[in-house]
Design a protein around this nucleic acid. Sequence first.
RNA 1: GGGAGUUUAGCUCAGCUGGUUCAGAGCAUCUGCCUUACAAGCAGAGGGUCACUGGUUCGAACCCAGUAACUCCCACCA
Length: 896
Amino acid sequence: MSIAKTYSPTAAEDKWYSYWLKHNFFRSVPDHREPYTIVIPPPNVTGVLHMGHMLNNTIQDVLIRRARMKGKNACWVPGTDHASIATEAKVVAMLKERGINKKDLSREEFLSYAWEWKEKYGGIILEQLKKLGASCDWERTKFTMDEDMSESVIDYFVHLHKKGWIYRGVRMVNWDPQGKTAVSDEEVIRKEVNQKLYYIKYEVAGEEERGANEGRTSHNAQRTPSHLTIATTRPETIMADAAICINPHDERYTHLHGKSVFIPLINREIPVIMDEYVTMDFGTGCLKVTPAHDLNDYELGQKHKLQIIDILNDDATLNEKAQILVGEDRFIARKKIAVLLEEAGALEKTEDYTSQIGYSERTNAAIEPKLSMQWFCKMPELAKPALEYVLNGDVKLIPEKFINTYRHWMENVRDWNISRQLWWGQQIPAYYLPNGDFVVAKTKEEALTEAHKIDASLTIDQLSQDEDVLDTWFSSGLWPISVFDGVRNPDNAEINYYYPTNDLVTAPEILFFWVARMIMAGHELRETKPFTNVYLTGIVRDKLGRKMSKSLGNSPDPLDLIAKYGADGVRVGMLLCSPAGNDLMFDEKYCEQGSGFANKIWNAFKLVKGWEIDNSIAPKNSVAIEWFSSRFSQALVEIDSDFAQYRLSEALMTTYKLVWDDFCAWYLEMVKPAYQQGVEKQKIDAETYNATVAFFEDILKVLHPYMPFLTEELWHDELFGTRSELDCCIVAQLPTIGKINSQLVAEIEIVQQVVTQIRNTRNNNQLSPKEALPLAVKANSAINYNQYEPIIKQLGNVTELSKIDDAINGANSFIAGTDEFFVMLNIAVDKDAERERLKKELDYLIGFLKSVNAKLGNERFMANAKPEIIENELKKKADAEARLKIVEDNLRGLAG
RNA sequence: GGGAGUUUAGCUCAGCUGGUUCAGAGCAUCUGCCUUACAAGCAGAGGGUCACUGGUUCGAACCCAGUAACUCCCACCA
C-alpha cells in the first residue's frame, strides 16, 4: 500500500469528527471519576466564528482533551446567548427588509418572527466550532432563552427582589436611540470625537444694553452686559435648559446673582443659579443646565430643584416641548440650530473641540442620557463577596494582572440597570395592579396571590406584566449554574457533580460584564465560586497590531484558514503566537508552520511504516532507545509544569521540539537502517521497531490535544496493531513520566556536539556529506565512547572511531565537553586558520576564567553567595581550566 | 484625569528566587545540499547597547527611582 506523500487534512477531519460523535466520546454524564468542567462562553446566537472565537475555543478544546486523556470526566458545555439587543436589532432589520415595521406587530407576533429567525440562522457558530474540532458535549447544548434557562433567570430575579436588591426607579440612564432601550454603563463605549464647542449668547432679563462687550470678557463692573455667553457641545438642547449656572466665587458674574436669562430662539426665561460645581476656567464659566439630557445637569437640577424638560423622543428626535425643530434628529437639529442662532445673532463663535462620547456597544449609536423608569440591581452586597473570591485566590485570574482591574471595578461599582425596553429576552416578572402598585412573582398566578394581599377583589386579567426584558448579562451571569439546572433544582445530581466548574476561558473585556456577575450569582445562589481558574486570552490583532475587525477587513475567515491549513494546522498556528493574557499578533504564517508540523509528523510516520522486522538482527539501538525515553520523560515534566501555569504556547513548543528535534532529527536518524547499496529494503531489529512504534504512539497522545485529527488518523493505522472500535486516541490515557537517565542525556548531548562538529568540519572544508571520514578521540572525561560509536558513525558518517592517547598533528581537531576529537582529512590542514581558531578559543577561555576567578577571589561574593552557586563557580573553573590546557597543547602542537 | 500592562534578534515570544562569558527558542534571513520519510525537507551560519537615565548590589535583562513610546481598563468637566 502506498502512503500519500503529504498529509491531507480535509477527509480525515470529517471522518474522525463524526466517528467521535458516533461513539459519544464528547458525552459526559456524572460517574465515579473526577469531573473536569468547562462551560463555553456562549457566543451570540447571531454570531459567526471570528478569530477571537478560534483562539478561545482552541484553548478550551486543548484543555478539555487533555483532561479527558488524564482520566477525568471531561465535560464541555456548549451553547449560545440570546444577546437581546443585538439579536432584536437583527430581527428588526430583517422585518424591515420584508416591509414589516416592528411597531405594527404585537409582542407575540414579533417574538414568533424572532424565534423563526433564531431557528433558521441561530447557532451557525456552533456548527463552525465543530470544524475546529471542538469536543463539546453537544447533547448539552443550551440556549439562554431555553425554557428552563429562562425560568432560572426569573427565579433569580424573584430571589434578588425578595432580598430587596432589586428596585425600580426613575434615573438617568444610557439610552440607545437606535435600539430604543436603556443599556448598562458597561455597554457604553467611549470614543474620542471631534466636535464643536458652540458659544451661545443668552439675553439677561431686565438689563440694558450698555456696550459691545460681552459678559465673559468683561471685568469691569461698570459695564453691565445684557448678555452672557455659555459654551456647549449640544446647542440642540438649549430648549431644555432649566437654568444657567455660575460659580459663586466667579467675580466676573457677581452682577448676575439673582438674575434670569432668556433662552435664545424660544425666549423662555430661566434663572441663573450658583454652584461650585462649575469650573471657572472652562469655556466661559457659565454652564447651561439641562437636567433632562445630561447626567451632571440632572444631579445639579435635583440639587437646585429645577424643572426637567425632556425635549427628545425615544429615537432622539426633538419633540414638541422643544418648540422648534420638532421631529428633527438630534444631530440634524444641531446643525440647523447653529444656523438659526447665527441668524438670530446669538451665536458668538464656534471652536473645534474633542471630547469623549458614549456609543452603544451593540448598535454603535451615540448614547443619549435619558431619564426613565428602569429596574436596578443593587451591587454593593453582591460585589463584596465576589471580590473576596478573587482576592483570596479561590478564583484565580490568569494572568494575575487582572486582579487589580477587577478589584478596582468591584470597589467602585454602581447599581446595575437591568431592564431593557426590548421584547427579545426574559420579560421582567413584575405585575402591575390597576392602582399602579406592583408585585413580583414567578408566574401571573403567583402574582395574583400576592396581589390579593393588597386587594382581595382583583382578578388575573387586571394584572399586567412589565413590558421590559432583562439585560442579557443578567441571564448569562447564571450560565455555569443554569446549564446544570442548578437554579431551579439546586440539589440535583448534575450541579452537585459538575459545579464549581474548573476553567473558564474568556476575553478580558467581559471580565465585569460576565465573569464578575457569574461569581456574584455563584455566591448568591450556591455560596461557592462558579469556577476555579479564569484564563483570560488576549485580543487577536493582525500583524500590524490592529484589532481584527469587519470594518478593517483584516480578519481572515477562520473557515478559509481551516480549509487551507487544516484544523490542526490552524489550532497549532493560533497557539504558537498566543502569550497568556497578552494580545496576539496573528499572522497566517503561523498556520503554515502548524500545517508544516503536521506534515513532518506524517513523514516520520511514513518512515516507520516502511520498516520491516528481521528477527535475525540483534538489538543494536538500546542506547538510543533509552536516551529518547529519557528525553520524552523530560519533555513530559516540562509540559506538565507548563500546563499547570496555563502556558499552553510553551507546552506546545516543548512538544514541537520533542517531536521535530529529538524524535525526528536525532532518534529516528540514530536508529533508522543505514542505506545499503543494492539492498532494496532495509530491515530493522525487533526491539528497535517495537520501541519506535511505542514512542510514536506516545507522541500521538501528547500531540492529540493540539492536533486531534492527525493524531486520530495515524492512531488507527495498522502500524499500531489492530484496534477495537473504541480504542481511540481521543480517549487514550496520556503517557506517564518514566525513568530519566540524566547522565545518558548529558553524554548524548556531547555526542550531538561531536556529530555537529564533524558536519561542520566537512562544511568548512567543502566536503560532501557523503564523504565518510575517520575520527579519533582523546578522551579526558570518563565518557565511554564505545557505546556511542554506532551513533557517531551513523550520524556523522564516520568510518571508524579510534581511541588515542596523544593529539594527532595535522588533523582537524575540536573539543566536545572536555574531550578532544581529531578528524583525519585527505587534505592538508590550513595551519594558519587552525591557529586562528584556537587562538580565539584561547582568548575566550582566558576571559572566562578571569571572570570566574574574579568572583571566587571576591570576599563578599564568597561571603554572600549561596553554597551551590559557589560550587557551580568552582566547577566552571575546573572545566575551563581543562579546556584551556587542551587548547594550549594543541596550539603548541601546531607550532611544533 | 486615574490605574494597569508592555518594551529582549527582522517577526512572535521565553528568560521562574538577581548568580555560567546569559543573552535563549520558533519563524524569517544567508550559505551549502534534490543524502531512499519529509525541498512543507536536510546540514550549517549570521543576527541583540535586553527602550533610555540613574541607583542598590560582590554581581542586574531581572530589584528601586525617573524618562520615553505603545496598549488596555476606568472616569460626568459643559
